[in-house]
Amino acid sequence: MQKISPLRSSIEAFNKFKALRAGKNTNDEQKTQTNPFGIAFKGTVIQMDVFEKTNNGDNTTSTHGTIKEKLQNASKLLTSTWVGTINKFSSVKNNVIAFGNKIKDNTVATYKKVQEIANTPVELNPFKYSVSRLQTLSTGELRTMLANELQGA
């Protein structure tokens, strides 16, 4: 049986540790190569393919095809924008019409209610019975007005 000296065993252990560390470092390098931004999400390293474009294959197509596709995309975008705008305008128009109709209905209802309650023409002079105005009237007029008001009481 071979005798193991303590020095040799410690050297061997160090070499093993060194080799392990070196191996670990190389693994980390490999991982970081696929993750150029070094972004991790909840402990999981995000792979590079997350950042890759889905249309990589398009690069292989001809220039003519790309332009055509771009034009198609632009026309689609324009169409969708146009439709969206039309919808927006039509909804605004409907809202305005509904608001106008509501105001008209409310006004008519209020006017009818006032007519029903008062059953007389609405008095439009709010200052007719103000103290300052009444003071300018003669005592005879004031007597008549007071007598008329107290008559029903």
Binding site: Y129, V131, L134, L142, M145, L146, E149, A153
Partner: peptide, 15 residues
Amino acid sequence: MNTRKVKNIIEALGK
């Protein structure tokens, strides 16, 4: 009887 009117008429007569 309109109380506001009566009040104003009496106040006007007072002044």
